[in-house]
């Protein structure tokens, strides 16, 4: 494998890893809150979270691009805080990916949280466990599988995204070029050998990951 390809793989994995970290960090409290309330406002938030499932990624990418422009609020704030431009940078990719993959993390976690028996948490409370302790000692162990599922889906979906990355990343090699956009590049410039490598690699990676997930779920059901 040549160095350019290795760089693309590295950027892709780094993006997926960092994105998954933020997805779990932000998605967990959001999913918890959504699972505990049934207001109209909650339904609206659920709809917003689910939006990337139905919207063309280019729509999200377009609005993000506008928000990240140096003269827009988000772009300006970022530049003031970090001293760097947001548009076409790696952090911009992370922000876009987190938004785009959010439903893949929030939905399985929300489902798991709402199935969790509340009486167990009440029992924990009477035994002296405060809410954070309850989450750590009862919720987490009982929903571990859903966290694995949510994390894997978030990771895989980030590796597989294209539209948002292309719109806000700018496809800069070594910085914002990931496998999906690099593949598009190679095809454009008729480098079919490299395109084959990347495409086949992505197919195998996705298949192995999904197979592992389904297998572990099947194992749980049959136990």
């Amino acid at each position: 494998m040549d160095e350019a390809l290795l760089t693309v793989i590295w950027v892709t994995l780094k993006l997926a890893g960092v994105t998954t970290f933020w997805l779990l960090l932000l998605g967990t409290p959001l999913a918890w809150w959504l699972s505990r309330q049934h207001s109209r406002f909650g339904a609206a938030i659920e709809a917003v979270v689910a939006l990337p499932l139905v919207l063309p990624p280019t729509v999200l990418g377009f609005y993000l691009l506008i928000a990240m422009a140096p003269d827009a609020a988000l772009g300006q704030t970022w530049e003031r805080l970090s001293g760097e431009r947001l548009a076409f940078s790696f952090p911009a990719l992370v922000i876009g990916s987190v938004l785009y993959s959010l439903p893949f993390v929030v939905q399985p976690l929300q489902a798991a949280f709402s199935q969790l028996p509340k009486p167990l948490l009440e029992a924990a409370a009477t035994l002296g466990a405060n809410p954070i302790d309850q989450f750590r000692s009862v919720v987490l162990p009982l929903t571990r599988r859903s966290f694995v599922l949510a994390g894997s889906l978030g990771f895989a979906h980030t590796v597989g995204e294209f539209g948002v990355v292309l719109m806000i990343g700018g496809n800069i090699p070594g910085e914002t070029q990931v496998l999906s956009t690099a593949l598009y590049d190679r095809v454009e410039s008729l480098q079919f050998d490299q395109a084959h490598q990347m495409a086949a690699g992505l197919v195998v990676f996705s298949l192995v990951l999904l197979y592992a997930l389904y297998r572990s779920n099947g194992w749980r059901l049959s136990r």
């Binding site: 167990l120 009440e122 029992a123 924990a124 009477t126 035994l127 002296g128 405060n130 162990p141 009982l142």
Partner: peptide, 28 residues
């Protein structure tokens, strides 16, 4: 809040933690 009252409660349903053994439930 309940966790600062120290009222050990036994419910009609035992409400043991399913991911912990009996030993684990007692140690909890």
């Amino acid at each position: 809040p309940p966790w600062r009252r120290g009222v050990g409660t036994v419910f009609q349903d035992a409400r043991l933690f399913p991911h912990l053994s009996v030993d684990g439930n007692l140690s909890y």
